[in-house]
Structures are given as C-alpha cells and as structure tokens.
C-alpha cells in the first residue's frame, strides 16, 4: 500500500487534546411551512429541538432515526450548510458558522468532508472523475497546498483513487454514468478524502446500493477510517450499518435525542422504549432460519 504512504496515519491522531473534535450544543432548527390562511402566521415545523452531540478524534458516531426525525437537518447543520436557529456547532472548539460565505468555512471544510447518499446524484454528470475529485482540492487550496500546483493535485487525485480501490489511470477521464453504483460511491469517498480531512460525515452512504456492494463499501469505509485515523459521523436508518461502523450511537426522534451512548450498550440494552421498538422492528436474518422470528398479527 505504498500509494497511500503520504496519507496521514493513525499515529498522528493519538497526540491530541482531550477536547472533542466536533460537538454540537442545543441545536434547534425550525422551518416555516406554506401559509394556510392569508392573515394567520405561517405554521412551522420544528426539525430539531435541542440536540447535543460529541465526536472524539478518531471516534465514530452513528445517528439513527426514522424519516422525519431530523437526520437531514442535523447533517446540514453539522456540515455548516445551514444556520441553526439556536445552539452551536463547534469544531476543535471553534464555532462553525453555517449559512455564511463559503470562504469563511474553508478552514472547517479542509478537516470535515461529506459522503452523500445517492452516489449518482451527488456526482456532476458533466464532469470527469478527475475534476470531481479535484474539486475540494481546488476550492480549499491554502498557502501550504497551493505550492504543489497542478502536478501535486494530480498526484493527490491518483492517491485517493487508489486508496478507494479504483484504477486511477483508467477512471480519471471517465464520466460518472460509466460506473456502477458501488464504484460511484467509491468516487464520492475519494472526493471526500482528497483534502486530507480528519472527519467524514456520511449520509446513508450505502442505502442506495445492492447488498453485496454494500459490504464492499462499508468494508472500505471501515478500513479507511481505521487506517487514516479518521473520525466518522454516519447517519443511517439501517441499524446493521451503524452496528458495523460505529462505537457510539445517537437515536434521534422528532428532533430530540432519544438515547445516546456506546453502540454496544444502546443496541444491546436500550433504555428508551422507542429504541427498543426500533430494534425489534428490524427484520433479522438469523443464521438458523427456523428460529427466526416471524411476525404475528399486529393487533
């Protein structure tokens, strides 16, 4: 794996201050809905009603919830793509002011990158793989990386494409539609890795993929985060995925944190009734199918 030699290794991650890498305090976000009556105030929907969370350097947090729980809103706030009505997002103790000018957050984006859900929709159909992966490098170039110039950038593109298991020489000049779903998600991961981030925020990274490809992409994510010492925030409705990749779990319901703690504890002995219901709802594929639970009548 000499092609990844220049990627930062896990060793660098250990010598850090005890403060959390990413934290959120009292996040609230309310959306205004379309007006029903002309003279009445517009109705509102409270997407988040005070969410706190913490991710340590090299740690991994899984955010679980059903549709409407506020997962997407939380992701937007954690990524600084939107401004919270109340509360703060802090990265290494510094406030991440979302919704402002993109340049003001360049420092944050160099460290925190995003792996979106739909690997086809998140890649510009009119850009070649090379340009897609180069995008964060171009946008986030600072004094230290600007000196590398185009050659350095190309080298970095090849590096990250290798790191996600793609043949750089072959894929560089291709367009997204020429790849399968799993390969596209690899490209999206390569794009996120390009600026040497310390934290990946992944929004349902495998839910659009076939089960056999899912294993490969999860395997890749687990391998990369371990090898590079990356912290991971993973949003998913799939408890199996969270169980596989995350040390900590946060259960979100109706914009509030329902339960939070080490994955093993939350998934094995949930304290909240909602979490228990959620766990019980997952159809399981026991190794012994005869003992697999079948659903009885609902009522």
């Amino acid at each position: 794996m000499n092609e990844t030699a220049s990627l930062p290794t896990a060793e660098t991650a250990t010598e850090t201050a005890p403060e959390p890498l990413l934290s959120a305090r009292g996040l609230r976000r309310t959306y205004r809905l379309p007006r029903r009556r002309l003279l009445r105030p517009a109705p509102v929907r409270q997407a988040l009603r005070g969410v706190d969370l913490e991710v340590r350097e090299g740690g991994s947090l899984g955010i679980v919830g059903e549709s409407g729980a506020g997962k997407s809103t939380l992701i937007r706030l954690l990524l600084g793509l939107d401004r919270a009505d109340a509360g703060q997002v802090l990265y290494r103790g510094r406030e991440v002011a979302g919704g402002g000018r993109p340049r003001d957050l360049a420092w944050f984006r160099r460290e925190v990158q995003f792996v979106p859900q739909d690997p086809l929709g998140s890649l510009d159909p009119r850009m070649r793989v090379r340009d897609i992966v180069a995008e964060p490098l171009e946008c986030l170039a600072d004094a230290s990386t600007a000196a590398d110039g185009k050659a350095g950038r190309d080298r970095r593109i090849d590096e990250v494409l290798h790191a996600v298991g793609l043949d750089a020489a072959d894929v560089r000049r291709r367009y997204p539609h020429e790849f399968s779903g799993g390969q596209r998600q690899r490209i999206a991961i390569a794009r996120a890795l390009a600026p040497r981030p310390r934290l990946l925020i992944a929004d349902e990274p495998v839910s659009a993929l076939d089960v056999s490809v899912r294993v490969q992409v999860l395997d890749l994510l687990r391998d990369l985060t371990a090898r590079l010492g990356l912290a991971l925030v993973l949003v998913s409705h799939d408890l199996g995925v969270v169980q596989l990749l995350c040390e900590e779990v946060l259960v979100l319901k109706d914009g509030r944190v329902e339960e939070q703690g080490p994955a093993e504890a939350v998934l094995r002995a949930p304290r909240s009734g909602y979490t228990r219901e959620l766990l019980a709802s997952v159809p399981s594929l026991a190794a012994d199918p005869v003992s697999a639970p079948r659903y009885g009548p609902t009522r």
Binding site: L79, Q113, F114, P116, S122, D124, E135, C139, P195
Partner: peptide, 10 residues
C-alpha cells in the same frame, strides 16, 4: 445533490 456536495467541498 452534486451542488450540495460541491458546497460541502468548499
């Protein structure tokens, strides 16, 4: 999504 991803890329 690709514009969202671009914004998240800075």
């Amino acid at each position: 999504d690709y514009v969202l991803a671009a914004t998240a890329s800075g």
